[in-house]
Design a protein around this nucleic acid. Structure first.
Length: 313
DNA sequence: AAACGACCGATTGACAGATA
DNA sequence: TATCTGTCAATCGGTCGTTT
């Protein structure tokens, strides 16, 4: 059928064959009908015909194709998004059906900000692994803002990250309370000096986190600097806690770190605590998850496990 | 630059097997 | 028996490298 003849939906209410969507996903992902055929163990004509059937069913061209030409149309992009969502749901059916009551298996993807150090988390993972040794893990480290997006898009099941204010659609409990304090490195003129006042550090160059902004999850640090009249320039920033620590130790400037993380460096003579000595700001680590996402049993079990040891559980 | 041929990818027609 | 979905073979059209 010529494309220009397809202007209406010729099969209103006709049930759509799932295989056509599966084939269409392969065509879009491979960017070629031939490659899609190889992936699906079909011949190229079979894939070409399947695409043509899908286009006929929907009454719209989905791929603008020809010799040396392959482009997903706007309608094709919309169909692809829906097909992927349907594929995800269908793919989970087998796991959901075959999971038994007393044998939890599966895969868990946990998202975390850098350097979440707490025995509470370590103990939970150790206990969980002993109880469910067949469950596999993947832990991805990223910035809190990226984690929030990943949870909303359901590409991760749960996360340990910072949170400024509640996010619609995401549930959270406080997993760990931590206080940020200011530190400097051994090269700083302030290193080793006791009994300093905030006024003594106000004009120092500053190392900070990329989320230390008015719209970031470390807003309390921003507010602290504004409240105390810090006038030093921000000479370096990173979203990774290890890199912020490195830049402070290397003397690029003074900067905030969670006190329990900095404690060992202070003991080793790499960091020196600065005023205010009661801490800059409390910044809690939250356990977060998408409340409307369908978790597998492994994910649900780990979430229950982590919730049980959370501060605000 | 034009012509040529090899190659690649898509479509079409004929036909076969499975299924309702 | 009609329909759907697959394969095979032939064909078309474009790209690319080589030759003239």
């Amino acid at each position: 059928m010529a494309k220009e003849e397809r202007g209406q939906r010729p099969h209103p209410g006709h049930p759509l064959d799932w295989n056509l969507l599966r084939t269409f996903i392969a065509i879009v992902q491979e960017g070629s009908i031939t490659k899609a055929g190889l992936r699906l163990s079909l011949t190229q004509p079979a894939v070409s015909l399947a695409l043509k059937r899908l286009e006929d069913r929907l009454g719209l061209p989905l791929i603008d194709r020809g010799a040396g030409r392959f482009a997903v149309t706007a309608a094709g992009a919309r169909v692809y998004d829906e097909a992927v969502a349907i594929h995800g749901a269908v793919s989970r059916l087998d796991t959901l059906v075959h999971e038994t009551q007393d044998d939890i298996s599966g895969h868990v993807r946990l998202l975390m900000t850098s350097r979440i150090q707490t025995d509470r988390l370590d103990r939970s993972l150790r206990d969980f692994h002993r109880r469910h040794p067949t469950v596999t893990f993947r832990i991805d480290v990223m910035e809190s803002a990226a984690i929030h997006i990943a949870l909303l898009q359901r590409t991760g099941a749960m996360a340990l990250c910072l949170l400024r204010e509640p996010i619609p659609g995401l549930s959270s409990v406080v997993f760990l309370r931590q206080t940020y304090r200011l530190y400097c490195g051994p090269d700083s003129r302030l290193f080793g000096r006791r009994g300093l006042d905030v006024a003594d550090v106000r004009h120092e160059d500053f190392v900070s986190f990329t989320s230390d902004q008015i719209d970031g999850v470390l807003l309390p640090l921003t507010l602290f600097r504004a409240r105390e009249g810090f006038a030093g320039r921000i000479v370096a920033s990173s979203g990774n806690l290890d890199e912020v620590r490195r830049m402070i130790v290397c003397g690029l400037g003074i900067g905030p770190l969670p006190d329990h993380i900095a404690a060992r460096d202070v003991a080793d003579g790499l960091l020196w605590e600065l005023p205010p000595y009661d801490g800059v700001a409390p910044v809690d680590v939250h356990l977060m998850w998408n409340s409307s996402a369908k978790l597998n049993r492994a994910e649900r079990a780990l979430l229950d496990c982590l919730c049980a040891v959370s501060v605000s559980a």
